[in-house]
């Protein structure tokens, strides 16, 4: 640094003795500054490819829970327009609220699941997940008989036929916990548990820190690492704000029990596609529901990783 120079006041370093030399210095310094600024501008050149990253309207959009019905209507309308522009389909986008007296529970019969993965793909089709890169909410593990150690599970089995001898199959998706670790850690309250038990995400509020993804003990959350892609002819136009409307780059998503169907009274897509009838869904507060029957009558059912204290609303059970 300049302190090795004899002049004790570095301010005076700018006052050189000779005029000509000062001019040369000035030119050299200007050249450095100019090329430096040019290099900075060039460094930012990739930003030219930035497409509809955000708009003032989107940037200033309010938090879900603070929107008035009018605000919401405006946002829904914007989403409809955007979807139509991008996919050429006019969607129905609704903001479906939880119903009173309803708490959803899911039961999955491990005796019946054959590991065909139809639920995985029906889910993708229903919920408008990105096809490439691929986002899937359900993982099916092929487990050797006699163990529930997930580390022994095979995620990538590609057998000629399922089910195979000496294995059982364990589909895992968001467990819709009563004490969700993901909700607790979110720094912006962008994810929360609604009163029907579904943990939802405001895709327009998430900052993409992925803390929830680290916190989830079930590998249920997925991140949009880049712009999601959905072929136009595979878009599901029946959409919900907190559900399957198309997501954007840099936000989290996960299974929401097909809000767009279940909050309208229907079964989730994975239930309706399961060829083995292994998937059961319903209102646990209704004693007549299938899930109430299961929790009442089946002897053994498990909450996955009970020891982590998340208390899932997703139960695995066995016949007999």
């Amino acid at each position: 640094m300049s302190d090795s120079s004899p002049n004790p006041n570095p301010d005076s370093a700018q006052k050189p003795p000779e005029h000509g030399q000062s001019r040369r210095d000035f030119l050299r310094t200007s050249a450095v500054v100019a090329t430096g600024v040019a290099a900075l501008a060039a460094a930012l050149a990739p930003l030219r490819d930035l497409k509809d990253f955000t708009t003032v309207e989107k940037f200033l959009q309010k938090y879900y829970k603070e929107m008035t019905p009018q605000d919401m209507e405006k946002v829904l309308d914007r989403i409809r327009r955007e979807v139509e522009a991008q996919y050429g389909v006019r969607p129905t986008v609704q903001d479906l609220k939880p119903m009173n007296g309803v708490e959803f529970v899911y039961c999955l019969n491990l005796t019946r699941c054959i590991g065909c993965r139809k639920c995985v793909h029906a889910c993708v089709a229903e919920n408008n997940q990105s096809r490439d890169p691929e986002i899937q909410y359900i993982r099916v593990l092929r487990m050797p008989h006699g163990s529930l150690d997930l580390e022994k599970g095979e995620h990538n089995y590609d057998s000629e036929q399922v089910p195979e001898k000496n294995y059982f199959y364990m589909p895992i998706q968001c467990q819709q916990c009563r004490n969700p670790a993901c909700v607790k850690v979110c720094p912006t309250k962008a994810t929360w548990q609604d009163k029907d038990g579904i943990t939802v995400i405001d895709y327009d509020w998430c900052i993409g820190c992925r803390y929830c993804e680290a916190a989830c003990p079930y590998f249920a959350r997925r991140f949009n690492w880049t712009r999601p892609t959905i072929p136009k002819d595979r878009l599901n136009p029946n959409m919900a704000y907190l559900g399957n409307r198309p997501r954007r780059q840099g936000v989290m998503e996960k299974c929401h029990f097909c809000i767009q169907r279940t909050r309208a009274g229907r079964y989730p897509a994975c239930v309706e596609v399961c060829p083995a009838g292994a998937r059961k869904f319903g209102n646990v507060l209704d004693p007549e529901s299938e899930v109430s029957y299961i929790l009442r009558n089946k002897r053994v059912f498990i909450q996955l990783k009970e020891e982590v204290g998340t208390s899932p609303r997703f139960y695995y059970y066995f016949d007999v």
Binding site: Y63, C186, P187, C206, I207, G208, Y211, M252
Partner: peptide
């Protein structure tokens, strides 16, 4: 951050600050 443009959601007062839970 996946959405650095939304950093203001973190600012107490104008955003939603999940304190003290997060």
């Amino acid at each position: 951050l996946g959405r650095p443009d939304r950093f203001w959601h973190l600012i107490p007062g104008i955003g939603q600050f999940n304190f003290p839970h997060s």
